[in-house]
């Protein structure tokens, strides 16, 4: 008989997510926002020229997912990630179901890692969905045309598509760090609303820290900065420095968050429910 473990928990966490409305709220927003943006571009003259790639949205549909990522990084994608990651542990407390699953044949650590995998899967799916929808909608509106890089060179549509996919992959690093922080709050606060709002406040605070005089030196190490690291791919040649920095900065946020959350989860008394 195969022994249940993390993958069993993971499969059932996905099954539970499929049955909850909040899952579709986040995924629905991830799909709708790029569609609304594309419709707005299609019916209005002009372009958001003050953001990178904004001036190219009437030239190529490949600029759409990149502009969407830029607009969404302050609160939209962190909110989507937090909707599930901030709820996935606290929801068990709210339902009183933690005692139900912790008295079966899986260890607490396996339950925790199953939840982490499920939360990460959701965040990854949301970013993939938004990227695919924005790309398709953008191509419909502005065509599948070459895209200029930040260095001024022009990339073919095929290579541009690869760069968009790579940008989405790099963008996942800060998103997963945000998910990890939301998981920490979900585990510690045992309250979904507090975890979701707390994660959003954390994300917004990081954006604001750099406006404090004397703290601008922190910018390269803030999680918010890593949301722009994908732009390194859109240079010729590719600038890997911001991407490598994003990798370790995001890990520096995510790993301690998950480690603390795991410790709390393993040691806590399940006294409610």
């Amino acid at each position: 008989m195969s022994r249940p473990g993390t993958l069993t928990v993971y499969r059932w966490e996905l099954r539970k997510l499929r049955a909850q409305k909040r899952t579709y709220l986040g995924l629905g927003a991830a799909v709708l926002v790029p569609i609304v943006f594309s419709v707005a571009v299609a019916i209005q003259p002009g372009e958001p020229a003050d953001v990178p790639f904004g001036r190219y949205i009437n030239d190529t549909g490949l600029a759409f997912p990149l502009v969407t990522l830029l607009f969404g990084s302050i609160w939209f994608y962190p909110l989507i990630a937090a909707l599930v990651s901030g709820d996935i542990v606290a929801n068990e407390d709210n339902n009183g179901t933690l005692k139900t699953i912790l008295t079966r044949s899986v260890e607490r650590s396996q339950v925790f890692f199953g939840k982490v995998l499920a939360a990460f899967s959701y965040s990854i799916l949301a970013i993939i969905l938004t990227g695919v929808v924005a790309t398709v909608a953008g191509i419909i509106v502005s065509g599948f045309n070459p895209i200029p890089t930040l260095s001024g060179t022009l990339e073919t549509p095929e290579r541009g598509l690869l760069l968009v996919a790579g940008s989405l992959a790099v963008y996942l690093m800060p998103i997963l760090a945000i998910s990890s922080f939301a998981l920490l709050l979900s585990t510690v606060f045992r309250n979904s609303a507090a975890a979701v709002v707390g994660t959003l406040m954390f994300s917004l605070l990081l954006q604001l820290v750099v406006i404090i005089p004397g703290l601008d030196g922190l910018q390269p190490y803030l999680l918010s900065t890593q949301f722009n690291s994908w732009q390194g791919l859109l240079r010729t040649p590719a600038d890997w420095d911001p991407i490598i920095r994003a990798a370790w900065v995001c890990a520096a946020y995510a790993i301690p968050s998950l480690a603390i959350a795991l410790t709390v989860f393993l040691r806590r008394d399940v006294a409610g429910g």
């Binding site: 539970k16 049955a19 909850q20 339902n95 009183g96 179901t97 005692k99 139900t100 008295t103 079966r104 044949s105 429910g273």
Partner: peptide, 16 residues
């Protein structure tokens, strides 16, 4: 708990 089962307080399940 291999040979143990039961519940404390009211048994709780996923309402959805």
């Amino acid at each position: 708990l291999a040979d143990v089962a039961g519940f404390v307080e009211a048994p709780r399940f996923y309402p959805y």
